[in-house]
């Protein structure tokens, strides 16, 4: 544990794919926009889309991925019982 020996060996013959680097940048930007939006309190997907300027389907995909990895959690449906409300999950100390 603790070394990156074989990663370095592969890096000598293989460069990280450009597309993967771009995707990472894009995903991180979107994640940041959603996090900023959720920092203001409980939000639904359309609320976040409106505030962040992201397409709603992008918010659905990125936020559900954040939920999968424990960064976001759902609280319950809104008053109209149409959309779930989400909040940031407190980080483990």
């Amino acid at each position: 544990m603790g070394t990156t020996k074989t990663t370095k060996i592969l890096r000598e013959t293989r460069k990280p794919p450009e597309k993967a680097l771009e995707n990472r940048k894009l995903f991180t930007e979107r994640q940041k926009l959603i996090t900023n939006s959720l920092a203001n309190g409980l939000q639904s997907i359309p609320d976040i889309a409106k505030e962040s300027g992201l397409e709603p389907e992008v918010v659905t995909y990125v936020m559900m991925s954040m939920r999968k990895y424990g960064e976001v959690t759902e609280i319950g449906p809104d008053e109209m019982n149409e959309y779930f409300l989400y909040q940031l999950k407190p980080k483990n100390p």
């Binding site: 639904s44 997907i45 359309p46 889309a49 709603p56 389907e57 918010v59 659905t60 995909y61 936020m63 449906p77 019982n81 149409e82 959309y83 779930f84």
Partner: peptide, 8 residues
């Protein structure tokens, strides 16, 4: 949920 906007 709907994939487009998360609506039930």
């Amino acid at each position: 949920l709907r994939p487009k906007d998360g609506k039930m």
